[in-house]
Simulated assay, not measured.
Amino acid sequence: MTGAASPPSAAAPGAAAAAARARRRGALLRLLLLAAGLAAAGLVLRELGAAPGTEWVDRHVRGQGVLGEAVFLAVGAVAAAVGVPRQGVAFLGGYAFGAVRGSGLALVAQLLGCALSFYWARLVGRDWAERRLAGRFGRRLRPLRDVLAGSPFGATLAIRLLPVGNNLALNLLAGMAGIAALPYFAGSAIGYVPQTVVFALLGKGVRVDGLWQVALSAALLAASIALGLRLLRRHRAAQAFEEAGPG
């Protein structure tokens, strides 16, 4: 017979690739909208005499010395642990403390949040994760878990540099699946740096009307996205992360 439909096995790879491209475009759009939204909100609120990130930042963090830093670290860590975008934490770090110190404090807050969600999942949900990874749900997540287990530092670094994905989802998966903690945190720390610096620069530029900081943050964001997309094409961990689609 002629004109028979293509078998499902032949169509499946194309459909999976199209779905992956759609997830990638959606994630990139969310990241760009986050950057634009933070900058626009900050500029508007500054013109109105208010502080981006609410008046709370000016009242309890800026100009408060060590106490303000401690408050920022505590609140930023909890925010990152429960799924608030880490870029927002970096933005407020730059707004409150400047690009250099804000980047450093935001990075510490992000790592504390990473550890909180990682160890919460390890202590509470590890058995649950192993059961899910053994069943139908594991068909998507098991490859990512296996890549992380085989190379916890390199795979985590590649994933953290990506402009796609979900920070909280990865922390929960790594904790529940028993990924080695120290290399996972080390890869996260280095992988967090580019976007942390980008968004801290953006926050600093908004506060002081520094157009060059805003322009530099935009250029660095473009470079970070280009690096992430290159890794997405070349690194097995990045491919597994996108195929799993946790965020």
Rank of each mutant, 00 (worst) to 15 (best):
R23A: 02
H60L: 09
Q213M: 08
A158N: 04
L43T: 10
A200N: 10
G93I: 06
L232A: 05
L92A: 09
A41I: 05
A149Y: 03
G210T: 07
A4Y: 07
P8Q: 07
L229K: 03
R131G: 11
A35P: 03
R23I: 00
A223H: 15
G63C: 02
L34R: 04
V61P: 03
A218L: 15
L48N: 03
F72N: 08
R160M: 14
W120L: 11
R62Y: 00
G49L: 01
P152C: 03
A12M: 06
A96V: 00
N166I: 00
L229N: 04
A181Q: 07
N171R: 12
L38E: 02
L168H: 08
H235C: 03
V193W: 14
L144W: 01
V84H: 04
G63M: 09
A149R: 10
V124I: 07
D58C: 00
L220C: 12
A81C: 08
L33A: 12
L172F: 07
R142V: 02
G68H: 08
A158D: 03
A223W: 14
L38M: 12
I159G: 02
A80R: 07
A109P: 09
E130H: 15
P163Q: 03
F241Q: 02
L31P: 01
P246V: 04
S6H: 09
A11T: 14
G205M: 11
L29D: 03
L227T: 14
